[in-house]
């Protein structure tokens, strides 16, 4: 077995043996879908002619996937440093890229499963999402979104030394960003200046891209811009991640 396969297997086994975390990783975005779906059931967003669900479903999905990618790697790196697992790996010839690649693959699988589950539920008549023909274009946006949030998670997990710190930092990033990027409230309802600020946030682009692909709210250019922006955020946070990465808490 290669180091990549072994680390992925260890990661998978550790995940499925922690059933509570598995359950909430997938249930968390669904909870938001249910809550917002009930609040805004059957309503249209004024002036746009579109249903709330068309805004909220792609928005909550993007936030849920990004949240899981960021939290997952941040917790793992913090925990691995505290448990000296990173030190153990450091003393073997396995390169760091292999370690991160196995976590990345895991995050992509989780993101994909989250998306399939979430869209499946949103399509139920109670929520009333209808998919546009362009829905497969959501996959590259999803992939790039996971990559961008994972690279942010590496930075968070490299800075924070305790679970409390990871949760505090990650929540401070993800919760305001979810509201500002239109994950929980239709972005068209926000004042123009706030909409402009949201252009600086990766989640805004993931929302736009996923929303366009799933509901046909934009065009191909929107998906292209979203993908390019997410790739750009990945580069920026990737550079930061390489600079902040630490093998141990004391070196």
């Amino acid at each position: 077995m290669t180091a990549f396969a072994a680390l992925s297997t260890a990661n998978y086994k550790a995940s499925v043996r922690d059933k509570t975390t598995v359950f909430f990783t997938f249930a968390f975005p669904l909870l938001f879908l249910v809550v917002f779906g009930l609040i805004f059931a059957g309503q249209e967003v004024e002036g746009s002619g579109r249903n709330y669900i068309d805004y909220i479903a792609p928005g909550v999905l993007s936030w849920g996937v990004g949240n899981a990618a960021l939290f997952g790697i941040a917790f793992t790196l913090m925990q691995w440093r505290n448990d000296d697992i990173l030190r153990l790996i450091r003393m073997t010839p396995t390169p760091l890229t292999t370690v991160l690649a196995s976590r990345y693959t895991g995050a992509l699988v989780i993101g994909l499963v989250q998306a399939v589950l979430f869209v499946g539920v949103a399509l139920l008549p109670a929520f009333g999402l209808s998919l546009a023909g362009s829905w497969p274009l959501a996959l590259p946006v999803l992939l790039l979104g996971v990559t961008a949030f994972l690279s942010m998670g590496v930075v968070v997990g490299s800075r924070a030394n305790t679970p409390e710190a990871v949760a505090a930092i990650a929540n401070s990033i993800m919760v305001p960003m979810a509201f500002l990027s239109g994950s929980f409230l239709p972005i068209d309802l926000m004042p123009a200046w706030l909409q402009n600020i949201s252009r600086a946030l990766p989640l805004r682009y993931m929302n736009d891209g996923i929303s366009t692909a799933l509901t046909g709210s934009g065009d191909l250019a929107t998906i292209g811009l979203s993908s390019a922006a997410l790739a750009g955020f990945t580069v920026v946070f990737g550079v930061l991640a390489v600079r902040t990465f630490r093998w141990s808490n004391n070196s």
Binding site: T2, A3, A6, A10, T94
Partner: peptide
């Protein structure tokens, strides 16, 4: 240092692969 939630054999197999 041990990998989380693995058995003794699984842990060592992971170390071996590294």
């Amino acid at each position: 240092a041990f990998f989380a939630r693995l058995t003794a054999r699984e842990h060592l197999a992971t170390v071996a692969a590294l």
